[in-house]
Simulated scan of single mutants.
Amino acid sequence: MNDWTQLPDDLPVPEDDGGARHLPGLELPITRLPGTHGRTVDLSSLSGRVVVFCYPRTGEPNVPNPDGWDAIPGARGCTPQSCAFRDAHADLLAHGVSHVFGLSTQPTAYQREVAERLDLPYPLLSDHTLDFASTINLPTFRVDGMVLLKRLTLIIEDGAIGHVFYPVFPPHTNAADVLGFIRRYPR
């Protein structure tokens, strides 16, 4: 399948391995992450409610994903998830979210291409050094020599993690799930 905006019907469902159980209530460390908007972001310093969806990697047009990618539970779906947050962005802001970010371990230059191609209204942040992921012990996995984030979404309240969506499946409904949570629990 070469259309990365569509998900195959037979994707394996990721199981909750407990890898994010420690995150709710955690105060974020000072970590500067480069963004596709040309600035660095320290998530610990942002006021208000912030949504950060973490994803493994976005594919490149005409470049195949790693062998067996679709068989890895939770790996496939970064483009549909990113597009869903793009489409829900205005609603999230209207319901009190101050910032929306995507986060992966891909370098900023790689992320910039996808942000432009998908016309994303929010920045993608790069943790290519794994400083942020290792400091707060985000769940990861390895494939083809890459360390990638498992798919999860953080609701950050004034620099501390207030809620975590993990595992996230299917990825294209994550933005709607987050918006539903924001509506149920307004600030």
Rank of each mutant, 00 (worst) to 15 (best):
A71Y: 07
T129A: 08
Y185G: 01
P167V: 11
P121Q: 00
D67K: 00
V147D: 02
I30R: 03
A90F: 06
N65P: 14
C83I: 13
V100D: 04
S104Q: 03
T58M: 09
G145C: 11
D10S: 00
R21C: 02
T105I: 04
S134P: 13
V147Q: 10
T31E: 04
A20L: 00
V178Q: 06
P56A: 01
Y55D: 01
C78E: 04
D10I: 01
H95D: 01
F181S: 04
L28D: 05
V147N: 03
T135A: 07
L130Y: 10
L130M: 00
S126N: 05
A71G: 10
D144V: 14
S47P: 05
S98N: 13
P107K: 07
H99F: 07
N2Y: 06
Y55G: 09
D67C: 02
A20G: 14
G102Y: 10
G38C: 10
T79G: 04
R142I: 02
R142Y: 00
A175E: 13
H89A: 04
T5K: 13
T108C: 13
D131V: 01
T40C: 07
E60D: 08
R117S: 15
A176Y: 14
P8F: 15
L138H: 08
R21W: 01
F53V: 08
L11Y: 07
D119Q: 08
H163V: 00
H128C: 10
Y166T: 13
L149F: 11
